[in-house]
């Protein structure tokens, strides 16, 4: 028996499930009348976000997400759109991170982050049916009951339940990310999927603020098995406010000596005509991990950078 590339061969079952999952995603959105779109991978610059570094490509960059181009489509009257896109982020490599990964992103005109949570539930249930998983997904030693509706808890509540300090104390000590990843995330989505909602305003530079509490944004994250799966916003449509937030992020990037990004003027100019909308980005590779039981993201893609 020829040996071939055994490390590729042994991923066969996971790669077949991956293909079936991608097919189910497309079928779900096509049945609901969403338009599948494709936008350029190589762009003049991404949305400036302090903690996300784009990979340079000549004078331009590889997209870190398809967000800016998809919102321009939304502003041009494409009301319900989805895309399965390759995205690139510099320096991100770990058990749950690849520097090149696959995002499913979709937008709903007239929606907000609460309606995105509902669509997200519908999508995962549709995929579970397509893959004959039933209503309980076994992931490693967990049995996750996906019967909707899934619990929603605010970031503040989650810190109060799981963290040694309150949200305010974590923010004051600049240790939000450390506490979130070490103390909060490991408890999220173990027996049921959960939406973590209402993030501190400064952690959602493209989301609308909460009407009743402007210290938090209309942002949520879906967690399954302790893993962050999808990020949803009620999208910000105020051009001036968006401009101020980008300037703030860009100033932080410059102070830290990071590569400057050009201001995304065409995107900013489209905001006055963009409808109120919800948008969400879901990590496809991690969803494949959940449905295949894979422990590492390496097991759900054919090639990792180390094996090229």
């Amino acid at each position: 028996m020829a040996e071939g590339d055994w490390h590729l061969t042994r991923k066969g079952a996971n790669l077949k499930t991956r293909a079936a999952l991608l097919e189910a995603i497309r079928r779900f959105f096509n049945l609901r009348g969403y338009l599948e779109v494709e936008t350029p991978i190589r762009i003049p610059g991404p949305a400036p976000e302090y903690h996300i570094d784009a990979v340079p490509s000549g004078d331009w960059f590889l997209q870190t997400s398809p967000e800016l181009c998809m919102k321009r489509l939304l502003a041009a009257g494409y009301d319900r759109i989805f895309q399965i896109a390759r995205c690139f982020r510099e320096g991100e490599r770990g058990g749950l991170h690849l520097p090149e990964f696959t995002i499913l992103e979709w937008y709903e005109a007239g929606g907000d982050y609460t309606s995105m949570m509902k669509t997200c539930e519908d999508l995962i249930l549709f995929i579970a049916d397509a893959l004959s998983l039933g209503r309980t997904i076994s992931y490693r030693d967990l049995a996750i009951d996906i019967t909707p509706p899934w619990p929603r808890i605010t970031v503040r509540e989650a810190f109060a339940s799981h963290a040694p300090v309150s949200l305010e104390e974590a923010l004051a000590a600049s240790s939000f990310d450390e506490i979130l990843t070490a103390h909060v995330e490991p408890h999220l989505g173990l027996d049921r999927p959960v939406f973590l909602t209402d993030y501190p305003a400064e952690m959602a530079s493209l989301a609308k603020l909460h009407p009743r509490d402007p210290t938090v944004a209309q942002r949520c994250e879906l967690y399954l098995a302790g893993m962050e799966m999808a990020n949803a916003f009620t999208e910000l449509t105020d051009e001036e406010e968006q401009r101020r937030r980008f300037a703030r992020e860009e100033a932080r990037r410059r102070r830290a000596g990071k590569k400057p990004y050009p201001s995304p003027e065409a995107f900013l100019a489209c905001l006055p005509s963009m409808p109120e909308a919800g948008g969400i980005a879901l990590g496809v590779d991690r969803l494949v991990m959940i449905v295949t039981g894979a422990a590492r993201i390496d097991d759900v893609v054919a090639f990792t950078p180390e094996r090229l």
């Binding site: 976000e49 903690h51 058990g95 990310d177 990843t181 952690m203």
Partner: peptide, 12 residues
């Protein structure tokens, strides 16, 4: 060793 990073947060 483990690399962790919330989507909108910093690399740890």
């Amino acid at each position: 060793f483990n690399f962790v990073k919330p989507g909108k947060g910093q690399a740890l």
